[in-house]
């Protein structure tokens, strides 16, 4: 379990993370979501004791990172796949990490096999593709068989096959009862991977909860209706208290009603329907609605004026 309490990080006058509190539970993948520059990476570095919080604290299974007895055997992390000396082989990179956490050298070959890098283990890491680098980074995170795992934007720049592999991998890790925190700025990706979401914007917590609730709560479900008697049906629906919007092409968008209810109203006043379809709000819409005013580098029409 990861617990952030009032976590704050200031660089001069810039506030990167602002009084952030959240909890990451074990046994499930938690998505750490926010626009670019929201403070996700800074928060992850603070979790790992790399950056010192200006205020607040973060605990891993009840302890600050610095007080963990075997840090790599407790927390595995992949913050940046490029954090490897380019002239060092994949095996040697993992060998020193293993030595630093008192793990047997045999463990190195196990994780290399687990991520499918055995055949290139003695090649220099600088020659690896992005996908291979990510695998090496994951091997490093898994080295100590940790109960807590952090991944910062693990699917960035990967091909579909790589994305699928990482997604399944993280879900498997969570199923084994581990705590998995994955950051991303892509809600659609997190919707497929994460059961819980922690959403931040401009360093502040925007919401925390299950993915389904957050998406459901933030998007409005509407029903699209096409009918030759739009005026008639529109009035009838408005009379029932539903919000009706007329589109330029003559169709109606009804909010606050299910498609069943719209169909019932249409039948009761004898209106012919050509189309009746429920519209689910898109994930991106939900995300924009949640983080709307907390995007740091916004390209708004106001700014362009």
């Amino acid at each position: 379990m990861i617990e952030a309490i009032g976590l704050t990080k200031r660089y001069g006058s810039t506030v990167a993370v602002d009084n952030l509190s959240f909890t990451v539970r074990s046994g499930r993948v938690t998505g750490f979501l926010g626009p670019n520059g929201a403070g996700k990476s800074t928060t992850m570095r603070m979790i790992l004791g790399l950056d010192r919080p200006t205020a607040g604290s973060v605990l891993i299974d009840g302890k600050p990172y610095q007080e963990l007895r075997h840090p790599l055997r407790t927390v595995g992390a992949l913050l940046d796949a490029k954090w490897v000396h380019p002239n060092r082989s994949a095996r040697n990179h993992l060998r020193w990490m293993a030595a630093a956490s008192g793990l047997p050298a045999g463990r190195v070959d196990e994780v290399l096999d687990q991520v499918g890098l055995t055949s290139v283990a003695n090649k220099r890491a600088g020659g690896f593709s992005l996908g291979m680098s990510q695998r090496l980074g994951i091997a490093g995170a898994l080295l100590g068989d940790p109960k807590v795992l952090l991944f910062d934007e693990p699917v960035n720049g990967l091909d579909p096959e790589g994305i699928l592999w990482i997604r399944r991998f993280m879900q498997d890790l969570a199923k084994q009862g581990r705590t998995v925190l994955v950051s991303s700025h892509l809600l659609s990706e997190m919707a497929l991977t994460a059961e819980d979401l922690v959403v931040i914007g401009r360093g502040r917590l925007i919401s925390q909860g299950s993915t389904a609730d957050l998406i459901g709560g933030a998007t409005q479900n509407t029903v699209l209706v096409r009918t030759p008697q739009a005026q008639h049906l529109g009035n009838a629906l408005a009379h029932k208290g539903f919000q009706v919007e007329s589109k330029p092409d003559g169709s109606l968008v009804v909010s606050g009603a299910s498609s069943d209810q719209v169909g019932d109203v249409a039948a009761s006043c004898g209106v012919v329907l050509h189309e009746l379809s429920p519209q689910r709000g898109s994930l991106e819409e939900a995300f924009m609605q949640l983080t709307g005013d907390s995007v740091e580098y916004q390209s708004s029409e106001v700014a362009a004026r």
């Binding site: 570095r45 004791g49 790399l50 610095q66 840090p71 940046d80 954090w83 000396h85 990490m97 630093a100």
Partner: peptide, 18 residues
């Protein structure tokens, strides 16, 4: 300096927080 250049110093401090 190569550890700072290539970020491995962070991995080092992750493994050895002292």
């Amino acid at each position: 300096t190569t550890e700072y250049r290539f970020g491995t110093i962070r991995t080092t401090f992750q493994a050895v927080p002292r």
